[in-house]
Design a protein around this nucleic acid. Structure first.
Length: 263
DNA sequence: AACATACGCAACCGCGAAAAA
DNA sequence: TTTTTTCGCGGTTGCGTATGT
C-alpha cells in the first residue's frame, strides 16, 4: 500500500517549523540519510543535518533509518510464525515492543506495535450504560470460563509434568546417573514455563514446536476454543493489558510449549 | 458514482535513561 | 556532582487506501 516514500509532491502537508522539516520523507532525503550512514555509521543523529544539509532533526533521521531504511529490514507481511511469536512475547512482556522486536530479526518495534494494534487490540469506545452492563455480564461469564479453563490447564500441566518426570527419571536410571528432581508445585510450574529468562539475557531465537512444524499455532486449535479466546481478547477493552499476560500464558500452556528457545 | 467508515502504516511527540561535557 | 545532550521507547496522530452502503 505504501511505498514508504511519498513520490508525489506533499509539500502541503509538510510542516516547516523553524529549520526542521516534518512529514513524509522524500526519496532525495532518504538518499542523503543513507549516504550519511554509509560514511559515518549509525548514531550521532543530530549531526546528520549539519553534515548532509538535510533539514530533519536527529530524532526524525533516526526513526526513518531504524524503521524504514535499514538494509536488514524484512519487507512484506508478518508471517504466521512471526505472529505467534508476537503473541507469545506480548503475553510475557506486554507493550515492550522493542524487546519483542529483538526476537524478530528484520522487524521493527513500530511495525510490531502497528501490527498488534490493528490485529489484536480492539478499539476502546466509550460504551453506553446498556453496553457497559452487557459487557460486564459478558466479562463475568468469560471470567468463569477462564477459571474453568485454567483449572483444566493446571490439571493438564500436572499430568504432563508427572509424565515428563517419569520419563526423565527412567532415562536417568537407565544411564545410572544422578539427577535432582524438582519437588514443589512451584518448580513444576516452572517446568512448563516457556522461557526461563528474557531473550535479552540469553540472545534467544525461537523455533515453533507445534507438531506439524509449520509454525501455525492456531491452525491446530478447535474452533470452539478460538471463539473462547476471541472473547478473551475482547477483555482487553475492559481490563487494558493487565489480564492479557495471564490469558496468553494460559493459552500457550494449553498448546504445549509452542515456543522453545535454543542457543 | 459518491460518500462514509475502517484499516494500515509512517511519522511525530513526550518522556525518561544513559552518556558526555 | 551537576547540567546538557543524545538516544530509545511507547503512545498517539494523520493521511492514503480499501471496503461498505
Amino acid at each position: 500500500m505504501y511505498s514508504g516514500v511519498m513520490e508525489r509532491n506533499t509539500e502541503w502537508s509538510v510542516v516547516e517549523e523553524d529549520r526542521w522539516r516534518k512529514g513524509p520523507w522524500t526519496s532525495e532525503e532518504d538518499k542523503l540519510l543513507i549516504e550519511y550512514v554509509k560514511l559515518h555509521g549509525e548514531g550521532r543523529w543530530n549531526s546528520v543535518a549539519r553534515l548532509t544539509g538535510l533539514r530533519r532533526n536527529g530524532k526524525s533521521c533516526r526513526l526513518r533509518w531504524v524503521n524504514y531504511l535499514r538494509p536488514d529490514l524484512k519487507k512484506g507481511q508478518i508471517t504466521q510464525q512471526e505472529e505467534s511469536i508476537i503473541l507469545e512475547l506480548h503475553a510475557r512482556w506486554g507493550n515492550r515492543w522493542s524487546t519483542i522486536a529483538r526476537s524478530l530479526p528484520g522487524r521493527t518495534d513500530n511495525e510490531i506495535k502497528n501490527y498488534w494494534r490493528t490485529h489484536f487490540k480492539k478499539k476502546t469506545k466509550k460504551p453506553s450504560d446498556a453496553a457497559e452492563r452487557a459487557k460486564n455480564r459478558s466479562f463475568k461469564r468469560q471470567q468463569q470460563q477462564l477459571k474453568q479453563q485454567q483449572h483444566q490447564i493446571q490439571q493438564q500441566q500436572q499430568l504432563q509434568y508427572n509424565l515428563d518426570m517419569k520419563g526423565i527419571i527412567d532415562l536417568l536410571l537407565d544411564e545410572n546417573d544422578y539427577y535432582s528432581v524438582p519437588s514443589t508445585s512451584q518448580e513444576s510450574q516452572e517446568m512448563v514455563t516457556i522461557y526461563s529468562e528474557t531473550p535479552e539475557q540469553q540472545g534467544y531465537s525461537y523455533s515453533m514446536l507445534n507438531g506439524n512444524g509449520n509454525g501455525n499455532v492456531y491452525a491446530q486449535e478447535s474452533s470452539n476454543e478460538e471463539i473462547l479466546w476471541d472473547g478473551l481478547w475482547n477483555l482487553d477493552d475492559v481490563l487494558g493489558n493487565s489480564m492479557q499476560p495471564m490469558m496468553l500464558q494460559a493459552k500457550t500452556a494449553n498448546v504445549h510449549n509452542l515456543v522453545t528457545p535454543f542457543c
